[in-house]
Amino acid sequence: MSPRPFQQVDVFTAVPYLGNPVAVVLDGRGLATEQMQSFTNWTNLSEATFVLPPEHPGADYKLRIFCPGRELPFAGHPTLGSCHAWLRAGGRPKGEHIVQECGVGLVKIRRDGDRLAFAAPPLRKSGPLDDADVDLIARGLGVERSDIVAHAWCDNGPNWRGVMLRDAAQVLALRPDASVLAGLDVGVVGPRGKVGVVGSRNDDCAFEVRAFLPGNAGMIEDPVTGSLNAALAQWLIGAALAPDRYVAAQGTALGRAGRVHVQREGADIWIGGASVTCIEGQVQL
Rank of each mutant, 00 (worst) to 15 (best):
V143T: 10
G81L: 04
A173E: 08
A248G: 08
P5H: 05
L87W: 02
G215E: 14
G183W: 00
A248P: 13
K94R: 13
C154M: 11
A178Q: 02
S46P: 04
V9K: 12
A248S: 15
M164N: 01
V15I: 15
A150C: 11
I98T: 13
E47L: 05
D27I: 09
L181H: 04
G187E: 01
D185S: 15
G238H: 05
C154L: 14
A75F: 04
G273W: 11
V195M: 01
Q35E: 14
V186I: 06
C83F: 06
L136Y: 01
V9H: 12
D268H: 15
L116F: 06
G76Y: 02
P78T: 03
V9Y: 10
T79K: 04
R4E: 13
L106T: 04
G251W: 14
E101D: 05
E101W: 11
R166E: 05
M36G: 08
L116S: 05
L72D: 02
C154T: 14
A239D: 13
P243C: 07
A120R: 09
D147K: 06
S2K: 11
G190C: 02
L123W: 12
L116Y: 14
A48E: 08
G30Q: 10
L18V: 10
V186H: 00
T33A: 15
A242Y: 02
R259S: 13
I237L: 03
D60C: 07
G140R: 10
R210Q: 07
V262K: 05
P158Q: 07
P5R: 11
Q263K: 12
